[in-house]
Design a protein around this nucleic acid. Structure first.
Ligand SMILES: [Zn+2]
Ligand SMILES: [Zn+2]
Ligand SMILES: [Zn+2]
Ligand SMILES: [Zn+2]
Lengths: 151, 151
DNA sequence: CCTAACACCTACAGTAGCTGTAAGTTCAAG
DNA sequence: CTTGAACTTACAGCTACTGTAGGTGTTAGG
């Protein structure tokens, strides 16, 4: 048994692109798997599990560095899980911050959209609000950095 | 009158980096401003207003392409503002989707974090949940694309 | 056994929206 | 006149992939 999968099957199993797997290998998140005679990667069940872990963590928004850390923690099952929990809590905090920020954004955008009654550009609240930050209630908005969005 | 600003002053006024302004010029969001004898950019008030518009729109999460569209709409004040409103509504919809997605993430992360009582990695719910998607309530989570996050 | 279709290989470029760096000019204060 | 900050261009790097080109391996049908 030791049913080994080609990269295409592995990608299918993990719900990602073939290139993504090669990318994970390249940055050292996945080991370089054994190859077939024709130089094609053959993934063992352990590799597939590791890949699933990575994809699940990614789906929860963990950055690759955090996943790297979680994976190496996972390799020492007898250690305290404090560090792992801290990573998860940090991620939770991050997501909560993002939500708050986006909710402020939503309020602002909603006001903008609702105040416009249609008509000429010259009278449009959308353009007006963007042109002038003064009447904007959201004094603290800064330019966001990229992060977890929608699927 | 006709007080023209150097790029450093303009950046200060807009709350962004000098390079950001040069970047906007490079991608055609800002015109190439007149230069001093020594080849340094001199920004007129109109340039500063345009830059403020861009930064404000960015702060509200509009992608640069949407901002580009909004700017060219702003150049025709007699036209209907329908298109501008559509862009703003699309952005609002986008933000709302992101919020929903992040709220689902938050629920999932919270459960994960709360279920761990501390102890060995081998028993850690954080690692366990990530290892196995089956007991995960969030069946629909996909890998997110990047987008508007926190400040 | 041969061939067509398809999966795989490497290597690299591109995405968004900046940000940082290097090597060289210009400007303003002292 | 000198010093140092601010400016110039040009290009590399960030995240986490995704797409493409040009070639090789595998497999099913005839
Ligand atoms: Zn309008
Ligand atoms: Zn505002
Ligand atoms: Zn734990
Ligand atoms: Zn899950």
């Amino acid at each position: 048994m030791a049913t080994r999968l080609t990269i295409g099957r592995a990608a299918e199993a993990a719900g990602c692109k073939v290139q993504t797997i090669r990318y994970y290998e390249q940055i050292g998140l996945l080991r370089r798997p054994p190859r077939s005679e024709g130089n094609q990667r053959l993934f063992a069940q352990e590799d597939i599990r590791r890949l699933a872990f990575i994809r699940h963590a990614r789906a929860l928004g963990f950055p690759l560095q955090a996943i790297r850390d979680l994976l190496s923690l996972g390799d020492e099952p007898e250690q305290s899980c404090e560090a792992a929990d801290a990573i998860a809590k940090a991620q939770l905090g991050d997501v909560e911050q993002r939500i708050e920020y986006l909710q402020a954004l939503r309020r602002e955008l909603k006001r903008m959209v609702e105040q416009c009654r249609g008509g000429r550009i010259a009278d449009c609240r959308v353009i007006e609000v963007l042109s002038d930050h003064a009447p904007c209630e959201m004094f603290n908005h800064a330019v966001p950095r990229s992060g977890v969005g929608s699927p």
